[in-house]
């Protein structure tokens, strides 16, 4: 379970005070496929960064299971990211000087109990590209590597920041399908930040954010398969 309790992220003071996220509260169950929707500057990425321990909240509590990550120091946050969180970025953020296989194997340095890299890459359909460098792959393939890198750690949480933002729609669908399957089969909580409202149809939980506030949190009892989404 993930729970945000009155979480705020404030930049500046006095008149220059800007609330990137203000008094945000919501709760989602483990293994959910969560979509965070909102226009640019709404605070969705801030929410994701706080949840992933990449940024500190100004106030409130963020519970991942029974752990309040707002109380962790830097060392503990590093361990939290290493053990429990997988990240997927819009621009993949792969290490350009490591091959596909090495990018995934790299995770063994932060978590010993990683899944075998080749096996995971095979799962995401890249079994034939192990020795290639990221620059030799298409955008969709790079994002698959990024997903493989994230799931190799078997994280509780998979945080995806605009994972299809740099991809064409067909490729985007394939990537989202992969993420949805991961949520279903691995019981991993997948949180996707996007401004593509169409994806909401496939989500278990949709959180809408506007001007730093949680506008709504809705649960879809019977979400459709991602391939059925009308783009």
């Amino acid at each position: 379970m993930i729970r945000f309790e009155k979480v705020s992220k404030i930049y500046g003071q006095g008149e220059a005070r800007t609330a990137a996220l203000d008094d945000a509260s919501f709760e989602v169950e483990s293994g959910s496929f969560v979509v965070v929707l909102g226009p640019s500057g709404a605070g969705k990425s801030t929410l994701l960064n706080l949840l992933g321990g990449m940024d500190d909240a100004t106030a409130g509590a963020i519970l991942v299971g029974s752990l309040d990550i707002c109380t962790l120091n830097e060392k503990q946050l590093t361990r939290f990211r290493a053990e429990s969180v997988g990240f997927i970025f819009q621009f993949y953020n792969l290490i350009p000087t490591l091959t596909v296989l090495e990018n995934v194997e790299l995770m063994r340095m932060v978590k010993r109990s990683c899944l075998p890299a080749a096996e995971v890459l095979d799962q995401v359909g890249l079994g034939g590209h192990l020795g290639k460098f990221p620059s030799q792959l298409s955008g969709g393939e790079q994002q698959r590597v990024s997903i493989a890198r994230a799931i190799a750690k078997r994280p509780e949480l998979l945080l995806c920041d605009e994972p299809t933002g740099a991809l064409d729609s067909d490729t985007g669908v394939h990537i989202l399908k992969l993420l949805q399957d991961i949520a279903r089969t691995h019981k991993t909580t997948v949180v996707i930040v996007t401004h593509n409202a169409a994806i909401a149809e496939a989500a278990d939980v949709v959180i809408r954010v506007r001007d730093g506030h949680i506008e709504s949190t809705t649960r879809e009892p019977a979400p459709c398969d991602i391939t059925e989404v009308r783009w």
Binding site: G52, M54, E74, K75, T78, R79, R81, A82, E83, V85, G86, F87, N93, L94, I95, P96, T97, L106, M107, M109, V110, K111, R149, A150, K153
Partner: peptide, 14 residues
């Protein structure tokens, strides 16, 4: 690249 490593859980020492 270093930021990516930090995000995925690399320790500062590493």
């Amino acid at each position: 690249e270093l930021a990516t490593l930090k995000v995925v859980g690399f320790k500062r020492r590493q």
